[in-house]
């Protein structure tokens, strides 16, 4: 057991899989010699050589297209898209190519690859380098979508993603790279499609993802100590497949549901979950489902404005306390 940063967990997860399977290759901009702009892949090229860990030109379409061609003919590529926002310049592969290949070819071809990308805000990078795009990827049939919140989950879910025979979009949160926690030694392999209850509670269920997880946990502590509200915090971890059962079971126990989402409001991941819960657990609910999200705006660069935009622990506390005390919204 050792303390590991989220950043180093990325390299450890990739290394674990490259060690295991020589068909795992890794490509992206500045990922090899420079170790990645977020320094999340330092040391990989020294360990696995420049034929397996490859620097590419600034060609997002070529990166994802090449990963796909390699995946459909036998390799297990991991491709980096530096900032998640850049998914927009190669969205054809994410939306049209990877996820439809197996279906359109009636199962003749598959696309076992991982796209890892620096997602999310909090770094004062402004509107084009800060977005939370997990919902862009969640809405496409044929993709799997994960967004880990802790170093141990980064390693385990990376392993699961690489071993999965489907295209997996792996959202790393930029503002979590420096965070640290204990990670067990040895091989770690997690399971896609599993949510984790991080804090059991009786009064309300809070769902969170990535950077919103530590904020939801902090909020839950304050809600317990200052408001006497005992919240269950669930790290959703995997949007597709979605662990609906863990969520529905929790709502059945608590009767209340809050989502904490970094994505802008419209069509955020919580909207889909709210709709599932409304359909399937309506009679378990003791009050309205409430979504706490970034407002429907582009993100500002200024620190105090960005802090106002992203859900913060105090804002989560305030909103949940208000609603739990009978406010309608």
């Amino acid at each position: 057991m050792a303390e590991l940063t989220y950043r180093d967990a990325v390299a450890r997860g990739i290394a674990q899989e490259m060690e295991r399977d020589s068909n795992v290759v890794f490509l992206g901009e500045d990922v090899a010699r420079a170790g990645g702009v977020f320094k999340a892949t330092v040391g990989l090229v020294d360990r696995f050589g420049p034929l397996r860990v490859r620097d590419t030109p600034i060609s997002e379409q070529a990166i994802l297209g090449a990963a796909m061609g390699a995946a459909m003919t036998g390799l297990r590529p991991i491709a980096e898209i530096m900032f998640a926002d850049f998914a927009a310049v190669c969205f054809d592969y994410i939306a049209n190519e990877f996820p439809k290949l197996r279906y359109m070819t009636n199962g003749q071809l598959g696309c076992p690859l991982v796209v890892r990308t620096g997602n999310g805000g909090g770094a004062r990078f402004g509107a084009q380098h800060s977005q939370s795009i997990e919902n862009w990827t969640m809405m496409i049939p044929g993709l799997k979508v994960v967004a880990p919140s802790s170093p141990v989950d980064v390693v385990g879910l990376m392993a699961a993603a690489v071993r999965d025979d489907n295209p997996v979009i792996f959202h790393e949160h930029k503002s979590l790279y420096a965070t640290k926690s204990e990670v067990p030694d040895g091989e770690i392999v997690d399971t896609l499609g599993t949510a984790k209850i991080l804090r059991p509670g009786r009064d309300a269920t809070i769902l969170a993802l990535a950077l919103m997880v530590p904020r939801a946990l902090a909020a839950a502590e304050t809600l317990a100590s200052e408001h006497g509200i005992d919240c269950e915090v669930i790290d959703v971890r995997s949007l597709v497949p979605l662990d609906t059962q863990t969520i529905l079971n929790s709502v059945a126990r608590t009767g209340r549901l809050f989502t904490v989402e970094e994505n802008p409001r419209l069509c955020g991941w919580g909207a889909e979950i709210a709709s599932i819960v409304a359909d399937e657990a309506f009679w378990d609910l003791d009050g309205p489902i409430v979504r706490i999200t970034t407002p429907h705006i582009p993100l500002p660069a200024a620190d105090h404005l960005e802090d106002l935009a992203l859900p913060s622990a105090p804002r989560i506390v305030e909103r949940i306390a208000r609603v739990m005390n009978g406010a309608r919204r």
């Binding site: 379409q61 070529a62 994802l64 297209g65 090449a66 796909m68 390699a70 003919t73 036998g74 390799l75």
Partner: peptide
């Protein structure tokens, strides 16, 4: 075209 590159890379 990029996809063909990927197959060739393999």
């Amino acid at each position: 075209l990029p996809i063909a590159c990927g197959a060739a890379w393999r």
